[in-house]
C-alpha cells in the first residue's frame, strides 16, 4: 500500500519505459521523436513530483498555512520543457530535410539508400 501511495513515480517509470522502447523499436523517424518526447515528459513529471508535499501550499507566508512546497523543481523543469520543445523542433526539421534528401522517413529505406553510396 505504501508503494502505491507514491503512484506518480509508477507513472513516471511506466512512461519512461514506453518512451524508451518507442525510441529503440520504431523505424519511423517521426515515431522515434514521439518516443523521445514521452521519455522526456516522464522526467518532467519526476521533477514535479519532487516538488510536491501532501497538503503543502505555495511558499507565500500566511498565518493559516505552515507547510510549504518547494517551487524550485517546477522552475527547473520549465527550462527543461523549453529544451524539450527545441529538441523536438530541431528533430522534426531534420526529418523534413531527410525526407527531401532520401525520399523516406523510414529507417530501413534510408539505411539502404546510404549503403548504395558506400
Amino acid at each position: 500500500m505504501s508503494n502505491l501511495g507514491l503512484y506518480n513515480y509508477w507513472i513516471v517509470i511506466t512512461l519512461m519505459m514506453i518512451g524508451f522502447y518507442t525510441v529503440m523499436a520504431s523505424h519511423n523517424l517521426v515515431k522515434t521523436l514521439i518516443g523521445l518526447n514521452i521519455f522526456q515528459t516522464s522526467v518532467f513529471m519526476l521533477y514535479i513530483s519532487f516538488g510536491k508535499i501532501a497538503n503543502g501550499t505555495a511558499p507565500i507566508l500566511s498565518e493559516s498555512h505552515t507547510l510549504y512546497a518547494n517551487p524550485l523543481p517546477h522552475v527547473l523543469i520549465l527550462t527543461a520543457i523549453v529544451v524539450g520543445v527545441a529538441t523536438t523542433a530541431l528533430g522534426l526539421a531534420l526529418v523534413v530535410r531527410i525526407k527531401d534528401a532520401f525520399g523516406a522517413v523510414d529507417e530501413e529505406t534510408i539505411t539502404l539508400e546510404e549503403e548504395k553510396e558506400e
Binding site: L29, L36, Q40, V43, P73, V83, V95, F102
Partner: peptide, 29 residues
C-alpha cells in the same frame, strides 16, 4: 546528405544522454 541522418541519430542518442544527466541532477536535488 548523410550528414542529415548522422545529425538525427546524434540528436536522438544525445537527448537520451542529456535526459539521463537531468534525472541524475534531479535525484541529487
Amino acid at each position: 546528405r548523410r550528414s542529415l541522418t548522422a545529425a538525427f541519430r546524434y540528436l536522438v542518442i544525445g537527448t537520451i544522454g542529456a535526459t539521463f544527466i537531468l534525472i541524475a541532477i534531479g535525484l541529487f536535488y
